[in-house]
Computed example of a mutant assay.
Amino acid sequence: MKVIVCGGGPVDLVPKDLRADYFIGADSGAVHLLQMNIIPNYITGDLDSIRSNDAAKWEMELKSAVKVPTEKDETDTFLALQKAADLLPTQIELVGVTGGRLDHYHAVLHDLLSFQKDYPSIHFSIRDQWNVIRFLTPGRHHLAANSYQYCSFYAFDEDVTGVTLTGFKYPVHMEAIQVGTSRFTSNEIIDEFGSIQFSSGICLCIQSREESGE
C-alpha cells in the first residue's frame, strides 16, 4: 500500500504523475490535490492557508477536513504523516513540501527522519519535480536510476561509516561520509541500479535530475 501526503508548498513543484492507494492533504495541500482531480481520502490542518476563493470552490470536499487549532505543537504535515503511518502502508511519499519557506522544509526533513526511525518497515520519501529525498539506515540499499540518475549522500547528525558504492560513476569501498563534507555530491548511477552499503550513521540520500528532464 502506498500513501501520498501532499503539503501546501509551491504547486509547480508537485509532480504531475501522482499514483497512490490513499491520499492525504495537509492544509492547502488538499487544494493542490483537488486541482489535479484527486479527491483526498483524508484532510488535516487548520485550513488557515487556504485562500477564500479556493475554500468556496471546494467547500463540499473540504468539509471532510479534520480541523486542528491554529496554535499547536505539531505542524499540519506532521499530523498528516502520523495519520499516514497509522495506516501501516509499505510506502509514504511526501509531495508539496519543497520550495517556499525553508523553515517549513527543514521541519519536514526532521519529521521524515523521526518517522523513518519509528517506522523502519515503511519506506518514507520526499519527491518533487526534480528530486527524491530519503533517509537511509545502516545496511544495503538499491537505488533505481529511472530519471533521477544523479545521487548525493550526506551524513546526518553523525559520520556515516563503512560506505561502499557500486553501480556508480565514482565507486568507493569502505570509506566514510563525514558530517559537513560535500565530497559525495552529484555521483551518477551508471547501471540499472546503484547500491550503497554502510555500517553506521544516518545517510541523507538525494536523487536528482536536470530541471529540463522529463
Rank of each mutant, 00 (worst) to 15 (best):
I4T: 00
C6R: 00
G8Y: 12
G9N: 00
R19H: 08
F23H: 03
I24M: 07
G25E: 00
S28Y: 13
V31P: 13
Q35T: 00
I38R: 01
I39M: 08
I43E: 00
I43Q: 06
T44N: 05
L47A: 04
L47F: 15
R51F: 11
D54A: 03
D54N: 01
K57V: 04
L62G: 06
K63P: 04
K63G: 07
K67S: 06
L79A: 02
A80L: 14
A84P: 09
L88Q: 11
P89N: 01
P89V: 02
E93C: 11
L94M: 10
G96A: 09
G96M: 09
V97I: 11
L102W: 13
Y105M: 09
V108I: 11
F115A: 00
K117M: 14
Y119S: 04
P120E: 00
S121E: 11
D128V: 10
D128K: 05
N131L: 06
V132K: 10
F135S: 02
T137W: 09
P138C: 06
P138M: 07
H141I: 02
A144Y: 11
N146L: 08
A155H: 07
V160N: 04
T161C: 13
T161N: 11
T161V: 12
L165H: 06
K169M: 13
P171K: 05
V172L: 15
M174E: 14
M174Y: 14
A176C: 12
A176H: 13
V179C: 10
S182R: 08
R183N: 11
T185I: 15
T185V: 15
S186L: 15
I189T: 05
I196N: 06
Q197W: 09
L204D: 03
C205Y: 15
I206H: 12
R209L: 11
S212Y: 15
G213N: 06
G213K: 08
